[in-house]
């Protein structure tokens, strides 16, 4: 079902499930005898992965800014990269630059043979029962499974709810969408809104383009052992230099906008990186700000943006219903669950 407002799309993700088409998500299969060694050299995270395991990581530029948001996964024979951010051409050039001459590794973009659909929401696993014979509800977070009809399914997501991506052969896309039934279709703006509410990194947010994993609190996606990987030396130098800024959650009774200065007693101390209206009854807005490390803590209530006061808070901004819905138990009536925006 199409044509829902942004709020309608977001509420569908928060309360039941919504489907999205993500043509900008790049899926690359990495194969060959040297695939593991190649990925160990390419990625700034550890690549010791169990079969069927996914791990979030990043690709960095040499100056330690973020080139791509990445999930790396392992299956029986190959590795998979699910990549958000760069164009296909830029991604393949980056991957090629890390390959040694004569190295036995190949990477194949799936863009001309497959499409990516995502289903997000506290009942996404239930919706997907119509697509796969095997139980999607039993998939652990950050896992990968091959489904029928040549589909690959990963449980990941960036909304804070149960989230699955389906890597679907092009000739199966319409049939797969039909099996999903009359789901609300969520666009990229709705997914970005949910990512901010649940504090997931959104590489498409304009405010984060020149920031590093240190400022964006993404160190958990890296391994300090990987000093040889592109960008990690610069990151180590930046960390050692100290004086770092850090992202903070923001809430205000009025509006705020990306680029707004964050001010204390007339002095600009930081910037708003991202913002969105708060969909709860109290209204106002939420955001991500960037502040100097010593004051980048929740509870700071002397900040202001041009529209009015804001305070720093601990994200995520809401209690996801998915925390309260367990596929292994009898699913609660959605009407009995608390309002995520209460």
């Amino acid at each position: 079902m199409n044509g829902h407002s942004l709020e309608g799309q977001v509420r569908a993700i928060r309360e039941w499930a919504a489907v999205s088409s993500l043509p900008h998500l790049r899926v690359v299969r990495v194969s060959g005898d040297s695939a593991w060694d190649y990925l160990d050299r390419l990625l700034p995270c550890e690549v010791y992965l169990r079969e069927g395991q996914l791990r979030p990581t990043l690709l960095l530029r040499s100056d330690d800014t973020i080139f791509a948001d990445v999930l790396v996964g392992a299956d029986e024979l190959d590795f998979w990269l699910v990549v958000d951010g760069p164009t296909e051409e830029d991604l393949l050039a980056y991957l090629d630059a890390a390959r040694l001459p004569g190295e036995s590794v190949s990477f194949a973009s799936q863009a001309r043979s497959h499409a990516v659909l995502t289903v997000d929401g506290p009942y996404a696993w239930k919706v997907l029962e119509g697509v796969a014979e095997r139980g999607i509800g039993g998939m652990p977070y950050l896992s990968l499974a091959h489904l029928d009809d040549g589909m690959l399914c990963g449980r990941a997501g960036k909304t804070g709810e149960y989230g699955y991506f389906l890597h679907v052969p092009l000739d199966r896309v319409e049939a797969t969408r039909a099996k999903l039934g009359d789901l609300v279709q969520a666009g990229e703006a709705a997914l970005a809104h949910c990512a901010l509410e649940s504090w997931f990194f959104d590489i498409h947010a304009a405010g984060v383009a020149d920031l590093t994993p240190l400022e964006l609190q993404l160190q958990w996606r890296l391994s300090r052992r990987k000093a040889h990987v592109c960008g990690m030396a610069a990151l180590g130098t930046r960390r050692a230099a100290g004086g770092l800024r850090r992202t903070v959650g923001l809430r205000g009774p009025l509006g705020m906008a990306a680029g707004d200065p964050l001010v204390i007693a007339g002095e600009t101390v930081g910037t708003v990186l991202q913002s969105a209206p708060w969909l709860g009854a109290s209204g106002g807005s939420i955001g991500m700000g960037l502040l100097p490390g010593p004051i980048a803590h929740p509870g700071l209530d002397v900040l202001a943006v041009p529209a009015g006061p804001v305070r720093t808070v601990s994200p995520p901004f809401l209690v996801n219903r998915s925390l309260l819905v367990k596929p292994s138990r009898r699913p609660p009536d959605p009407a009995s669950l608390p309002d995520p925006y209460a």
Partner: peptide, 13 residues
């Protein structure tokens, strides 16, 4: 200092 204060404790964090 590698443990970011807003990083998720569970799941992928």
């Amino acid at each position: 200092d590698e443990l970011d204060p807003d990083a998720p404790l569970f799941g992928g964090g």
